[in-house]
Simulated scan of single mutants.
Amino acid sequence: MWDPGKYLAFADHRSRPFHELVARVRAEAPRRVVDLGCGPGNLTTTLAERWPDAELEALDSSPEMVAAARERGLAASVGDITEWRPAPDTDVVISSAVLQWLPDQDALLRRWTTELPSGAWLALQVPGNFQAPSHELLLEVVRRSWPELEDLLRFHVFTPAGYAEVLEGCEVDAWETTYLHVLHGENAVLEWITGTALRPIRAALGDQEWAAFRAELAPLLARAYPRRTDGSTWFPFRRVFAVARVS
């Protein structure tokens, strides 16, 4: 289960990559715009503002997220993006912070580029910080105390050049950015990853085990990301982007 409230706790930080991704999509009057992995819909609504005449399609695998998106007035649907097929009038596809969960995303991206109409835009963004202390320490705790859960932490991300190769044949703009997020509050980095990477771990553990898991991980993260004298925590976070225009 996804928790929309927990995910939105860092909405300002999580929204910036989405806006920077969409800014590189130069579609002027798309007929249909699709948000694959729309989450609670707070960012999907900005697509409607940018392209008010387009048919807006929103999809997410989480019923909880789709319910939150519908509360914002979006006609969002529950679905698996690996089974999604573009309608003939699809001119823009956005996928933000979703593909890292899919081991066969390269085949999926290649299929989309063959199914989208000529001139369509495909834009993706994925977290690329899985070698950062936050995720290395998470993996350390899992391997030491909950090794049966390690398979839940297998993420799949290419380099910018890797995405350019996957999208070969399209006009591709690929890059990466490391953001320095300034977080506030107790256990800020732990709270951040609780809303994303830790979600499958939380779902697999009972309440007591989850409390023990957090208790083991929290001090490790606190040492790796110490609070500064003003109470803030600096959290470097790398993301990988690619925007492709279908030939």
Rank of each mutant, 00 (worst) to 15 (best):
H19S: 15
T194D: 11
R154H: 13
L8E: 15
N187F: 08
L102W: 00
W234I: 06
L122M: 09
D106C: 07
G5S: 13
V141W: 02
A120Y: 02
A76W: 04
V246Y: 00
A212W: 05
N42F: 09
R223V: 14
G39N: 10
A215N: 08
V172N: 01
W146M: 07
V240K: 01
E83M: 08
S15R: 15
R24F: 11
D35L: 08
A211M: 09
G185I: 10
R238A: 11
E191K: 01
S96Q: 11
L198V: 00
E140D: 14
A75V: 05
F155Q: 04
L138G: 05
L108I: 08
E57M: 12
P127L: 08
R239P: 02
G195N: 01
A58P: 00
P52L: 13
R214H: 03
V189E: 01
P4S: 12
A197F: 02
P219M: 05
E186F: 07
G39K: 08
P160M: 06
S62W: 07
T178Q: 11
A244G: 10
V243R: 01
R223D: 12
H19T: 15
E176G: 08
W101A: 06
E140P: 09
N187S: 15
G39W: 06
W112L: 15
V243Y: 00
H135K: 01
R111E: 10
P117T: 07
T196A: 13
F10T: 08
R245P: 06
E209G: 03
W2Y: 15
D207L: 12
R70F: 05
A120F: 00
E64R: 11
I81C: 05
V25K: 05
D173R: 13
E64F: 10
W192I: 00
E150D: 14
G185N: 04
R72N: 03
A174S: 10
A120R: 02
V243D: 02
T82E: 14
H19E: 15
V22E: 10
T229D: 15
A120L: 06
V172I: 05
L190Q: 01
S145D: 15
L116S: 03
E71P: 00
R50F: 13
A23Y: 11
L109T: 06
R144D: 10
E165V: 09
E171C: 06
R31G: 15
S96C: 13
W175I: 04
L43W: 05
